[in-house]
């Protein structure tokens, strides 16, 4: 696809495609790049060509640059960072508390908590004895890479840590913001609608793993777990699936195995 106009014509000499934005491009495609005779490479009827600037800049470029910086820092320190995303009330914090209790003797764990306000979740995490930092986003609906950059400086997770980032409870906004994490993990409780993967597809498309939580409640609900998983795979054929209950512990072993398989072995960590 042409990156200037998104016209879908990638062949040389295809002629001028139709442009719903009403201006002509004189660039051709193939072995030669021709951005036209003018400084901006475009001409607009009735406009001074010299005043048109091609900039081709991703709106999230700044965030992505900081995310890349975070990713490099995490890699250097052998830290596995997971960005946990879900609707409010999916049981994220409960799963974190249980996970920390079960794994904290195996390797260091640190937590970044994102909420619009209060430090209630961080207080729950701190009670487990691991370092945790609260980020209050105020009116903001998601964490971004800049916030995580600051949090990493303050929290300074130890070499080889598991860093759990609990994003703001929201299935829409956090989908587009790379924090520098290794994986996005989307958590969906069986008390929610089984069609959420289709209703909020960007989040399920961005995640590498979907965890169905509160499965101990399935006998009391009409939630069709297989259908929910089918919907998730429609928007993301590669998504991993785990089912668990933080309450009974059923399915937690597979979650811990998933984490262990992705931690950077100590032998490969830099000193």
């Amino acid at each position: 696809m042409c990156i200037v106009c998104g016209c879908g014509h990638a062949e040389a000499g295809t002629g001028e495609p139709e442009h719903d934005h009403g201006h002509k491009h004189h660039h051709s495609h193939g072995s030669r790049l021709d951005f036209g005779g003018g400084p901006a490479g475009v001409s607009l009827p009735g406009l001074d060509q010299a005043r048109i600037l091609r900039i081709e800049t991703d709106v999230l470029a700044e965030n992505d640059l900081i995310a890349a910086h975070n990713r490099a820092y995490l890699s250097e320190h052998g830290i596995l960072a997971l960005n946990l995303v879900s609707s409010p009330g999916s049981g994220k914090t409960t799963l974190l508390v249980r996970t920390i209790a079960d794994l904290k003797d195996r390797f260091p764990i640190a937590v970044i908590e994102g909420d619009q306000q209060t430090s209630l979740d961080t207080e729950r995490i701190c009670a487990t004895g691991v370092p945790a930092l609260q980020i209050n986003t105020g009116k903001g609906c998601h964490l971004d890479a800049h916030m995580i950059d600051h949090a990493l400086t303050t929290l300074a997770p130890g070499q080889g840590s598991l860093l759990l980032i609990e994003n703001v409870g929201n299935l829409v906004c956090p989908a587009g913001f790379d924090l520098g994490e290794a994986h996005k993990v989307v958590i969906l409780s069986v008390t929610e609608g089984e069609d959420k993967p289709l209703k909020y597809p960007n989040m399920f498309a961005a995640a590498d793993l979907m965890i169905l939580t509160k499965t101990d409640l399935l006998p009391y609900l009409r939630f069709d777990a297989d259908r929910c998983i089918d919907y998730a795979r429609r928007v993301n054929p590669k998504i991993g699936i785990l089912r668990l209950s933080s309450e009974t512990g059923h399915g937690l072993a597979a979650w811990y195995d998933w984490i262990e398989a992705r931690r950077i072995p100590v032998s490969q960590q830099e000193d």
Binding site: G6, I52, L53, I55, E56, D58, P237
Partner: peptide, 25 residues
């Protein structure tokens, strides 16, 4: 689904753009 076979084994390759392409200044 895929408009041809009706399956869901789709790998998105385009249509995720979010960028400024040009400015008139």
């Amino acid at each position: 689904p895929c408009p041809i076979c009706g399956g869901f084994m789709l790998h998105v390759t385009g249509g995720e753009e979010l960028r400024i392409t040009e400015l008139e200044v």
